[in-house]
Design a protein around this nucleic acid. Structure first.
Length: 782
DNA sequence: GCAAGGTC
C-alpha cells in the first residue's frame, strides 16, 4: 500500500490532524521520542488508498553554530566570526525525533509537511525534508497548507497539496546566520573587554542580540526622556455649577489649557466681566463600550501583566502548563479571529456550572455567542480560549490565568455594554465649556469582564438656551509631567510595533535583559535601566550605529519579506548584511573608547576592581508629583494660581442676576506688564507698583528660577518669569536649562515633543489647535 | 560561555 509520512510541527498538531482526518479512528504507537507519538490510519489520497503515518517534531530540530575551530573566545578574533563557517546540526534534544523520522521515512513513498504555515514553519519543514530526502530516492514531497486545524481545513489541504517554498525557508536561514554571527561577535568582544577593564565577573556575559538590545533601547530611551523632561507650567479655567438640590456639575474648557499665562488671564478676565453661562448645546447619544477581541498571545501577556501583575515570562510558563493539562488552547498564537468552523457552544457550555461566571455563560448560550474578532491570523492556531473546565486542583497562579482566559473568552463572545452619553456645552463670554455624563443601560460583557471599568456620571438637568451663573470660575495652574517608565505591557506593545521578536519570544527577550543585569523591574512594576544597560546604550549611541534602536532589525525584517516574496535573492541579502555588520563591528572596535567612557561614567575608571557604585540618581519629581505627560489625557494635578473666584448665585432661577464678584483680578496690562521699568529690569505689576522678585524653592526643574509676583501684597495676579522679561537677560539654571536667546526653554522642549514620530501636524503653542501658530492664534484676538 | 527561533 502507498505509505505517506506526515510530519507536523508539534505532537499536538499531529494528534489533532490524525484524529480529524481519521474521524477518530487513528491508532497510536510510540516513537523514539516520548513526546512525539506516531498516529496511523488509512485514507483515500490521490484517489487511491494510502496508509497515513503522522508524527511530529518539536519546533526546530536543527541549530546553527560555528565549528570547533572558532569556539575559543580567547583565541579567535571576534571579527573573524563574520566569515567563519557556520554549520547546521541536529540538536541533542531532537536526536530521538530524528531517529523516529529516519526509521519511518524508509517505509514511505511520500512525505507531507504539516508544519505551521509561517516563516519558521517553512524552515522547519526543510529541516525535515533535508533529513528524509537522502534516505529515499524518488521520495515525493508535498506541503500541506492549512489555516487552522479543523476537519475541513485538513481535507482541503490534502486536496490542494503544494510544493514547499524554498524562498521562505531561505529567509529564515538568512536570519539565523545573521543573528548568530552578529550576536556572537559583539557578545564576545564586549564581554571580554568590559570584564577586563571594569572587573566584571568572568561568568557575567554581556551579550548583544538583535532583539535584546533594541528591547533594552526602549527602556533606556524612555528613562532618558523622563530624566531630561522639562516641566512646563500651564493654565486653565474651570467652571463649576452647584445647584440647590445638591446637584453639581463641573465644566471643562474646550481649549483644555494654555501654555502662556497672559492669554489665559486675558480670557479669564473677559469671562469674569460677563460670567453668565448659556447652554448652547445638549447632545445625547448611544455609546457602546466594546467587548474585547479574541485573545492572542501578545494581548494575553499585556493583560496578565496589567491585571494580574504577572510577568510575560511567568504568563507564558503558566499558559504552557494549562495547555499541557488540556484546559486551554495553544497559547502561542497571533490569531485574534475565531474561525467559523469552531463550534463555540460546547466551549461555553463547559463553563455554566462555575460559581463565578456560570450564569453569565448560560446567558451567552441563550443569546447565541457572537465573537468579536480582531484582524490577525497566523493561519495555524485559533485565538486562546478555554478547552475544558478543570476537574482537579490548580495552583493559585494557574487559577488566576485560567480565570482571565475564561472571562476574556466569555466577554468576547457576548455583547458590548450600552450606555447613553450626554454632552452639555455652555458659552461664557464666547468661551466654550462642556460637561459629559453617562448612564449605563446594559452592562452585558462588563458583568463577566471584571478587568474593565465603565463609570456612570449623572448630570443635572439643563435646558437648551438656559442661562445661569456658575458658582465658581477659577483659573488654575498646573504643570506638565514626564512620561512614565515603561511597564511590561508597554514594552511588549513597542516590541510588537517595531517587529522585535515574535509573540512567542517577547517575554524571553525581556527576561534575558534582566538576567544580564541591563535592566530591572522596580517596585512599581516598571522597567528602569541598570547602570550596565545605560552605559552600553550610551556608548553605542555615541558611535552612531543605532545598535540599540529597532530600525536595524526592522530593516532586516523588510529584506526577509522581500526574499519570501521573491523580490530579493537570499545570498545577496546575506552578503550585504554581513558586510554591513562587519563594517559596523570594525568601526565599533576602532572607537571603543566611547563605550569605555560611557562605562566609566557609571563604573569608575578602568582598572578598578570591584567597580565603584555610580553617583545616586534622584528620581524625577516636581512640585506636583508624578502625572501624565501633557500629550496624554489631562488628569493633571493643579494648584490654584489666582485666588478662587467664588461667584455666588443670588436668585433661585439660576438666571438674570449678576454674580457678586470677589477678589476680581485687575485687567492685565498685556505687553506693558512684562516691560522692564527700571535699570534692574523689575517690571510693574498690575497694581502699577514694582513687582516682587521671588525664587522657586520647590524641588523640580524650575527650582532656583526667579519670577515676579504682585508687589502690592499679592493684591493682583501678576506673574512673570524673570528670564522672560528682557531681551538681554540670560538664565542659566540647573543643567537641564541653559539658554541665552530669550526663548523660554519650555518652548523648545514643547516643539520637540509635539513633533511626534507619526508626523502629526504641529499644534499652536497657546490653544493646542492645529492650523495656525501662536503668533496668529485666535485666542490672542480678544 | 555568544543569537533568535521553534517547542515539551
Amino acid at each position: 500500500m502507498h505509505r505517506v509520512l506526515n510530519v507536523a510541527e508539534k505532537n499536538d498538531a499531529a494528534k489533532s490532524l490524525a484524529r480529524l482526518l481519521s474521524k477518530n479512528s487513528a491508532s497510536m504507537r510510540e516513537g523514539f521520542s516520548r513526546f512525539n507519538k506516531i498516529y496511523e490510519f488509512n485514507y483515500q489520497l490521490f484517489n487511491q488508498p494510502a496508509q497515513m503515518i503522522f508524527t511530529s517534531v518539536s519546533g526546530h530540530i536543527m541549530n546553527s553554530d560555528f565549528t570547533a575551530a572558532h569556539n575559543s573566545w580567547a583565541q579567535v578574533d571576534p571579527v573573524v566570526l563574520f566569515d567563519a563557517p557556520v554549520q547546521k546540526k541536529i540538536t541533542d534534544r531532537a536526536a530521538d525525533i530524528e531517529k523516529t523520522i529516519k526509521r519511518e521515512i524508509i517505509k514511505c513513498q511520500t512525505l507531507i509537511i504539516w508544519t505551521d504555515c509561517d516563516r519558521e514553519g517553512e524552515n522547519i519543514g526543510y529541516e525535515i525534508i533535508n533529513l528524509c530526502r537522502p534516505l529515499k530516492t524518488g521520495l515525493k514531497i508535498y506541503r500541506a497548507r492549512f489555516s487552522e486545524i479543523t476537519y475541513d481545513s485538513a481535507v482541503r489541504a490534502l486536496l490542494n497539496l503544494i510544493q514547499p517554498d524554498e524562498r521562505i525557508s531561505a529567509a529564515v536561514d538568512v536570519r539565523q546566520e545573521l543573528d548568530l554571527r552578529i550576536g556572537a561577535a559583539f557578545t564576545r568582544f564586549q564581554t571580554l573587554r568590559l570584564q577586563r577593564l571594569f572587573g566584571f565577573d568572568s561568568k557575567q556575559i554581556i551579550s548583544y542580540g538583535s532583539c535584546q538590545f533594541p528591547t533594552l533601547g526602549f527602556i533606556v530611551e524612555r528613562y532618558l526622556q523622563r530624566e531630561n523632561f522639562i516641566r512646563e507650567p500651564f493654565w486653565k479655567i474651570i467652571v463649576e455649577h452647584q445647584i440647590e438640590n445638591n446637584q453639581f456639575c463641573e465644566f471643562t474648557w474646550e481649549r483644555n489649557r494654555l501654555f502662556e499665562h497672559q492669554p489665559c488671564l486675558m480670557i479669564y478676565d473677559m469671562i469674569m466681566d460677563e460670567p453668565l453661562a448659556k447652554v448652547i448645546d445638549i447632545k445625547s447619544k448611544n455609546k457602546s463600550k466594546w467587548r474585547p477581541t479574541a485573545l492572542d498571545t501578545v494581548e494575553m501577556e499585556k493583560l496578565a501583566s496589567r491585571k494580574l501583575r504577572m510577568t510575560g515570562k511567568k504568563t507564558m510558563d503558566i499558559a504552557e502548563k494549562l495547555y499541557m493539562k488540556g484546559l486551554i488552547s495553544y497559547p502561542r498564537t497571533e490569531t485574534n479571529i475565531f474561525p467559523s468552523e469552531i463550534n463555540l457552544h460546547p466551549l461555553i457550555q463547559n463553563q455554566i456550572n462555575d460559581q463565578r461566571w456560570g450564569a453569565f455563560a448560560q446567558r451567552v448560550l441563550n443569546d447565541g455567542p457572537r465573537p468579536r474578532n480582531g484582524k490577525n491570523t497566523d493561519k495555524a492556531h485559533p485565538p486562546i480560549h478555554p478547552i475544558r473546565y478543570p476537574d482537579g486542583q490548580l495552583t493559585d497562579e494557574e487559577n488566576k490565568l485560567y480565570e482571565l482566559i475564561v472571562r476574556h473568552f466569555l466577554a468576547c463572545v457576548s455583547k458590548d455594554a450600552q450606555g447613553d452619553e450626554t454632552i452639555i456645552k455652555i458659552n461664557i463670554s464666547n468661551e466654550i465649556f462642556h460637561a459629559s455624563g453617562l448612564i449605563i443601560r446594559e452592562r452585558n460583557y462588563l458583568d463577566v469582564y471584571i478587568y474593565d471599568k465603565w463609570s456612570e456620571k449623572e448630570l443635572p438637568h439643563y435646558e437648551l438656551n438656559q442661562t445661569f451663573y456658575p458658582t465658581k470660575i477659577e483659573m488654575i495652574q498646573g504643570e506638565t509631567s514626564p512620561p512614565q517608565l515603561l511597564t511590561e505591557a508597554d514594552l511588549i506593545a513597542l516590541m510588537e510595533k517595531h517587529g522585535i521578536g515574535t509573540d512567542a519570544t517577547h517575554a524571553e527577550h525581556i527576561a534575558k535583559i534582566q538576567e544580564r543585569l541591563y535592566t530591572k523591574m522596580n517596585s512599581d512594576r516598571r522597567f528602569e535601566p541598570e547602570k550596565l544597560g545605560l552605559g552600553l546604550c550610551e556608548g553605542y549611541d555615541k558611535m552612531g550605529h543605532a545598535l540599540s534602536k529597532p530600525h536595524l532589525r526592522s530593516e532586516l525584517e523588510n529584506q526577509l519579506k522581500a526574499i519570501c516574496e521573491g523580490r530579493a535573492n537570499p545570498a545577496d541579502v546575506l552578503r550585504e548584511q554581513i558586510d554591513k555588520y562587519r563594517q559596523v563591528f570594525i568601526v565599533t572596535a576602532a572607537q571603543i573608547q566611547k563605550l569605555d567612557d560611557a562605562m566609566t561614567k557609571y563604573f569608575g575608571p578602568p582598572g578598578q576592581n570591584p567597580p565603584p557604585p555610580p553617583p545616586p540618581r534622584p528620581p524625577p519629581s516636581g512640585p506636583f508629583g508624578d502625572r501624565t505627560n501633557r500629550n496624554q489625557p489631562p488628569s493633571e494635578r493643579t494648584n490654584s494660581l489666582n485666588r478662587p473666584l467664588q461667584v455666588s448665585r443670588n436668585n433661585n432661577n439660576n438666571q438674570s442676576a449678576r454674580p457678586q464678584q470677589l477678589n476680581r483680578p485687575a485687567r492685565p496690562l498685556q505687553q506693558e506688564q512684562i516691560r522692564p521699568t527700571n535699570n534692574n529690569n523689575v517690571p510693574k505689576c498690575n497694581c502699577n507698583v514694582d513687582a516682587k522678585e521671588l525664587t522657586v524653592k520647590k524641588d523640580g526643574p524650575n527650582k532656583g528660577r526667579s519670577f515676579f509676583r504682585c508687589g502690592n501684597n499679592d493684591n493682583c495676579n501678576f506673574f512673570a518669569w524673570k528670564d522672560n522679561t528682557t531681551s538681554t537677560s540670560t538664565y542659566v539654571g540647573n543643567n537641564q536649562r541653559q539658554y541665552g536667546d530669550n526663548q523660554p526653554n519650555t518652548t523648545r522642549q514643547r516643539r520637540q515633543s509635539d513633533n511626534d514620530e507619526d508626523g502629526k501636524q504641529r499644534k499652536c503653542g497657546l490653544c493646542k489647535q492645529t492650523g495656525h501658530t501662536r503668533r496668529n492664534c485666535p485666542s490672542l484676538n480678544l
